[in-house]
Amino acid sequence: MFKKQTLKVNMYGYLFLLPALIFLILFTYYPTLLSIHDSFYLKDNLRPEGAFVGLDNYKYLLQDDVFQKVLWNNLIFAIGTVPTSIMLAMFMAVKLNKVTRINQWMKTSYFYPTVIPLVAVANIWLFIYQPDFGLYTRFADFFGLPDIPWLQSELWVMPAMIILTIWKEAGFFMIFFLAGLQNIPNHIYESASMEGASNGYVFRKLTFPLLMPTTLFVFIIALTNSVKTVDHIFVMTEGGPNNASNLILYYIYQNRFTFGDIGIAATASVILIVVLLAISLINFFVLDRKIHY
């Protein structure tokens, strides 16, 4: 009787996992293996059957100026977007935590970019960065600031992307910090204010450390986003000028779909997967330990 019961429960377990597992196998595990497989082949539209070339694709990518630039760009993009948007988000959350009507409105104005598609955001910002009539140029002319060729210069295009991304994401991250703040028991603050601690002191010694788990969670999301969001590139720059705004995922798209180079796209995909796994490893082994202060 007991045995039968376990078996039944067992069966239910597999049965319930089955539907999700099928899709995970088809669209996460199998494609990952497929990428690894294809990365050892010279495979493009002309040679759809593929020819085994060992590590040639990896060698090619490591020597390719464009790919090196793309990796570098992605690093800059991450460094530019992640810390700034986290700090901004934390600032917003701390300032807007108290529920008042005006705070509610400000929360709305910070959060709304989250519900707008990135392609639409790119459209809006295209007109902000437009050099002759764009919003920035008008603003700069009014205040006597220098004109900046945002999307036209190799130097400025990355800052332009970074600003857009921060604008799009900070409000989203703010929500996590607001949630984090709600979890901090009120009495901690009460005792602090009884002791006459200054606001800065309270933030440094109480709020910031208590928000640490949230911060790390947001950090991982932001870092992952910095390698998986490329929609704006399609609308704004197509990776230019001279690949200064090209990121890994866009490079994969270009090679696979524009140039029809399946082998190179697979190889770049494998490298991207390795980057993502590395991010997760940071999460598991480095950061998870530090949370237990």
């Binding site: 669209f27 990428s35 995922l249 696979r256 399946i262 697979a266 796994l277 991010i279």
Partner: peptide, 23 residues
């Protein structure tokens, strides 16, 4: 199985555009 599921958190479908297209 739980660990297998975690993998998808690390490798979201959004980045697997090239192989998923083949499939």
């Amino acid at each position: 199985l739980f660990v297998l599921f975690i993998v998808q958190l690390m490798i979201p479908a959004d980045v697997l555009i090239a192989p998923n297209y083949e499939i």
